[in-house]
Design a binder for these strands. Structure first.
Lengths: 147, 147
DNA sequence: TATAATTCCTATCGAAATAATAGGATTTTA
DNA sequence: TAAAATCCTATTATTTCGATAGGAATTATA
């Protein structure tokens, strides 16, 4: 399971991608209210997204947040890694957070590792393609189907 | 990341599938030593695998554990669910452990949910096919390649 | 029948992670 | 200068994880 931080972060990002037509920043409180996220918790989350270069902010009165990158450059894989660390299910199959399994005898011929490497590749692939644009597109399609 | 319980469980199962040629049970201590798993911790794990119907045991002197099912009927998906719960990354896309996301507005048209449903399907598919037989086969193939 | 060796079972513990809040410093507009 | 926003650090409560302790029950065998 992904953490609530990651889930809230994705929801906030999608919200900003949808609402932020002009360049006027949107306040934390507004996002929190609309997306049902605890105000103070969201504050911390947005700050992390900003420091990671996904969001920008304006301080002071009339301040708020807005996307720093284009919506098709922000994807779920990067957001997950930012808050939850590695996407892989075993430490020995992550690329950026690699760590050997202490109990393992021979990594190069481990059948278990081989399976989890496949899972990792599939998952990262799907999540890399899941940009904010893609997420909004999927939602649109489902709304049309519904009618 | 999967828990150490799941990782140890898979290792123990593969070990039993490989070593248990006759019907003589294998003792906890032997498995623990061979697979570098803390003895007492493994004890608890094997008990759970037994109660789930994957292992059988003989008590008392000359007692120990052995596979209850055939190695191609035991897969990683089931082991993971047993120890770590749902495989899905969002509560709203699991089949057996379904739970609504509190903060969600409309599940039926949620683009985020749609992405994580894809991930779930891919992962479950791969892990269901990852039986003990499959894992041993992969290891064999890699050993041959190495030469 | 006693003993040794094993699984079975419950309780407990410390450390880490998670979800969230508190409180104030800083910045900016008006 | 006041109001309203982000920025930043610390703290807390709860849950989960990894592991151990200690003994009860069971069984082969000397």
């Amino acid at each position: 399971m992904i953490s609530k931080k990651t889930k809230y972060a994705i929801n906030a990002l999608v919200y900003l991608a949808k609402e932020n037509k002009g360049t006027e920043p949107i306040q934390i409180s507004k996002i929190a209210e609309s997306e049902n996220i605890p105000r103070k918790f969201l504050e911390a989350i947005l700050l992390i997204l900003k420091n990671a270069g996904m969001l920008s902010s304006r301080k002071g009165k009339t301040g708020g947040y807005f996307l720093h990158k284009s919506p098709d450059e922000i994807n779920i894989a990067d957001v997950m890694r930012l808050f939850d660390g590695p996407i892989a299910l075993l430490p020995c199959v992550t690329h950026t957070y690699y760590e050997r399994c202490e109990e393992c005898k021979d990594e190069a011929t481990c059948g278990i590792r081989s399976v989890f490497a496949d899972v990792r590749n599939e998952t990262v692939n799907t999540l890399k393609n899941a940009t904010l644009t893609e997420i909004m597109l999927r939602a649109e399609l489902m709304k049309k189907e519904k009618k």
